[in-house]
Design a protein around this nucleic acid. Structure first.
Length: 150
DNA sequence: GCCAACGTTGGC
DNA sequence: GCCAACGTTGGC
C-alpha cells in the first residue's frame, strides 16, 4: 500500500470532473519518473491526494484511489491530442496511465497552508524545485493530512 | 508574463 | 558520456 499526490490542472480535469465521472484515466503524464511510479510502484487501492495546480488556488482538493494497473495512455497515439508522441507506437508505447476513482471532495487545503505546516516540511511535493506531477506521500504525512482534511 | 529549477535532446 | 541549448513546469 502506497500513498500519492497527483497534480492536475483543474481547467483540464478537476476534482468536480472526477466526481461527475466517478473514474478517469490519468492521461497526459510525460515524465519518465512519474510514469515509472505508475508502472512499477502503484497498486490498486493506493490512496491519492488530488491536487489542483496551475490555477488561482493551488492545493489539495480531494481524495481518490488508484483503481487499475498501469496501461498505455491512449493520447500518445492521437495526432489530434496535445499529448501526442510521434515516437510512441502501439507495439512500443512510451507512456502509461492508471485509472483513478473518486473518493471524496475535501475543503481546499492550499499550498500556502501545506507550506506553513511544519509536520509536512519534508513532503516531496513541497521541496524546492520539485516539478514531478506524481509524488509519493509517506504514511505519516498521509495520516496527518487525513486529520487536516476531516 | 516572469523566471527558477529541472528534464530532454542532440552534436561532438 | 559530456554538456549547451532548449523546453516545460508551476508558483507568483
Amino acid at each position: 500500500m502506497h500513498y500519492w499526490l497527483m497534480k492536475s490542472e483543474p481547467e483540464e480535469v478537476g476534482i468536480d470532473d472526477l466526481q461527475r465521472l466517478g473514474q478517469i484515466g490519468w492521461f497526459g503524464v510525460r515524465n519518465y519518473q512519474a510514469r515509472n511510479f505508475m508502472r512499477d510502484v502503484m497498486r490498486v487501492g493506493d490512496g491519492v491526494l488530488f491536487y489542483h495546480s496551475s490555477c488561482p488556488q493551488p492545493g489539495i482538493a480531494g481524495l481518490a484511489e488508484v483503481c487499475s494497473p498501469a496501461y498505455p495512455d491512449p493520447t500518445q497515439f492521437d495526432p489530434e491530442s496535445k499529448y501526442f508522441d510521434p515516437k510512441a507506437t502501439l507495439e512500443a508505447p512510451r507512456w502509461q496511465q492508471v485509472d483513478v476513482r473518486f473518493v471524496r471532495k475535501t475543503r481546499l487545503l492550499a499550498l500556502e497552508a501545506l507550506r506553513r505546516d511544519l509536520l509536512l516540511a519534508d513532503m516531496q511535493v513541497l521541496q524546492r524545485g520539485n516539478r514531478l506531477s506524481i509524488t509519493p506521500v509517506s504514511e505519516a504525512h498521509w495520516r496527518h493530512l487525513q486529520d487536516l482534511l476531516t
